[in-house]
Each structure stands twice: as structure tokens, then as C-alpha cells.
Write a protein that binds this DNA or RNA. Structure first.
Lengths: 187, 187
DNA sequence: AAGGGTTTTTGATAAATGTCAAAAATGGAG
DNA sequence: CTCCATTTTTGACATTTATCAAAAACCCTT
């Protein structure tokens, strides 16, 4: 919980008053490798802070699993579309490693946002960061070759390569596992 | 200005008090076709609301112009990365049609965000929408064929096809102009 | 340490898309 | 209406990447 508190204050500071109310808003969750945090079709009513561990979001396309994002320590994760719109999730969230998470329900978060301007600000700033991150990934994915994508990954987020099976990484990059394997063999 | 006020209140309502302060925060800008709203290398210090017209964001890659987004009536546009981080923009913003815009400076916006919780909320919610939009576009771009991408565009945003030159659309979809032309000829 | 399931690699081939060049179509300006 | 510049289409070919199938390598458990 201390990790969560100090992490979010890198976005924007909070008064001690607000800091005190936060721990009660989150629930601790411990899950093992391969367990599902969310199954497609469910409505995702929680936002999770990943204290330690790793997980992936994936959905099914023509019978194939497409991993489209990963989460690691200190990431906020959720099925974003479902959490915001209240519609059923198209994706699954699965643990890649045993993990410790802190969950806050949408209702609780909404209450916090209403009550505290500073939380509203914090969330707004968090969105900015996450938006920029997604934008960068998008531009990369669309206009780079498979080889360049792998090199970027090596440079920017080497921990992904170390901790995630190749097949998941391939679909994360939008290329086939075989192609990724061939690229890798040329290093 | 009235358009702007009523548009943003679809995100979240504002008190009459706040509504009154807003018009003074925006500056009206009228630009003609092909003019640049922002040039790469500049720091983008404004957020724009596009009242009428159309524009595109593009950057240079190996001597080629890559159009990576479009803006139309009632869109907020800016060089997002530059606006948020204060770093020089990598992209240009160019008018595709004569347009009417309302500009708010980052400083003015920051002031509004500090003063009014309801504006902070509104911006937070706007981010949610824009994030979801980007996410959908990302998933599409990465895992669909050129033909599917074009079909989606036809279905979801036909006005893009009607108002934007083919070459720009092709790079927006991440495919070559020739490929797009061939796909189109098969309808 | 051995066995069995999973993951990764390799090979052969096919499909999709890109590139370059030139022709055709389009649309504004005068 | 005509001409010129721009945009779009078409053709031939090259390249990249996907797909399918099988072999190899890698663990995880016992």
C-alpha cells in the first residue's frame, strides 16, 4: 500500500488528509501464475494497481489469442473500455507471474473523484501519461518493420523479453511467433 | 463558442458561473486550406477546439509524410505529446479545409483546472473518451488486413473518405496508397 | 536424472503488401 | 472551356511476413 501511495504522488501530491482515506478504498488481492483476473464477457468493475508481478491482456480473434498489452510492477491495469463504459469486456486479464494487486471499485473511485479535487487531478494526469504511452506504441506499431519493433522492445522495455513467453511478445508486437523467432536468431 | 460550450457539456455539466468564465479563455482562429497550425520543432502551447473544418497531423519519416490522425468538427486537437510534456513537437498540423478554431493556452487551461474541480473532471472524462478511441484504433490497425481497415473506415467514419485525399488516408491506415487504391477498385 | 508437455526454432511455401514507374483521371485557375 | 498541376490508378516486380508442419530445445514434475 505504501508503494501505491508513493507511486501515485509522482503524478501529483496529495494532502495527508486524503492520503489517510486512501488505504481503506483499496482491497489487497493475491493471485497465482496463470489465474485470470478478468474473463471476457464480464463487466470489469475494478481498477487494479499491480504492486509486484506481471500480467497480460488478451482477446480471441479467429480462435487465436491476441496479447495486446502487458502490466508490470507499479502499473495501473484494468479492462479500460469495460471499466469506463460499463460494457462487457472483450478481453481477458491473466497473471503471468504470481502477483500482489490492490483493487479499487469503480463506485469507490467515483466517490473519491467527487470528493477530492486533488484525486481528480491525479487521475487526469495519470491519463495523460497513459495516453502518451499508448500514442507512442501506436505510431511504432504502425510504421515500423518487425525487426525495428523488436529492437525498440529490447531498448525500451527489455524486462518484457526476459519475463514473457515469446508467443505473447509476438502478438503484442503484431507479428507471428515464427517471424519473431527468426529475427531474434540474427543477433 | 456556443458550439464549444454545449459540446463539452456532453462530457460533464458546468455551473453557469464557470460557463461565463470560459469564453474569455479561448481565442478565435480562422485559417485557410493547407495552412499550418503547428510546425514540427515548435513547442505546442495551445489546445484547439475545431468548430468547423478539417485538419491532419503528420510527421516525416525517411522523407515521407506520415499522416497519423485527422481532426474534424467538434474535435479537440493539439500535438498532444508536445502540449503535455512541453517538448518540441515531432509533428505538423495542417488544415485540410478552411477552419474555425478556438485556442486555449496551456497556462490558461492550467489555471482553469486549478480553480474549478468541474473543469478538471470534464478534462478527465474527455481523456477517457479519447483514450478509448485511440485504443480501438490501435487494436484495429495492428490486427486487421488492409481490406478490413478500409471497410471499417467506410463503416465508422465515411466522412474521412469523402473529405480527405487518398494518399493521406492510406498512411493514416498504415498502408501504401497503391494498395488502398487497389482495394477500393474492388467495390 | 528421466519423461512429458510446452515453447521455440527451422524449413518450405504462399499470401499480402510495398516499391517504382508510367498512364489516366480529376479538378482548379485563368 | 482548356491547360496544367495534382491525385489516383494500373502494371510489373520485389520484399516482407504469414502459414503450416515438423524438429529441437526447454522446463517442470516426479
Amino acid at each position: 500500500m505504501q508503494q501505491l501511495l508513493s507511486h501515485i504522488q509522482q503524478y501529483s501530491p496529495l494532502t495527508t488528509d486524503t492520503q489517510k482515506t486512501l488505504p481503506d478504498c483499496f482491497e489487497k488481492i493475491i493471485l497465482g501464475k496463470n489465474e485470470l483476473l478478468l474473463k471476457e464477457g464480464q463487466i470489469c468493475r475494478y481498477l487494479y494497481f499491480l504492486e509486484t508481478g506481471a500480467l497480460r491482456g488478451f482477446y480471441n480473434l479467429d480462435g487465436k489469442e491476441i496479447t495486446h498489452w502487458f502490466g508490470f510492477e507499479k502499473d495501473f491495469v484494468t479492462s479500460f473500455h469495460s471499466f469506463i463504459t460499463g460494457e462487457p469486456a472483450v478481453e481477458n486479464i491473466q497473471l503471468l507471474e504470481g502477483s500482489i494487486l490492490w483493487a479499487i471499485s469503480k463506485d469507490t473511485l467515483t466517490e473519491l473523484l467527487n470528493k477530492h479535487h486533488e484525486i481528480e487531478r491525479l487521475v487526469r494526469i495519470a491519463y495523460e501519461k497513459y495516453y502518451i504511452r499508448l500514442e507512442e506504441r501506436f505510431v511504432n506499431a504502425q510504421f515500423k518493420t518487425a525487426k525495428e519493433l523488436y529492437e525498440n522492445l529490447l531498448r525500451q522495455t527489455p524486462y518484457i523479453i526476459e519475463r514473457v513467453p515469446l508467443g505473447f511478445i509476438a502478438s503484442y508486437l503484431g507479428i507471428s511467433q515464427e517471424t519473431l523467432s527468426r529475427i531474434r536468431s540474427k543477433f
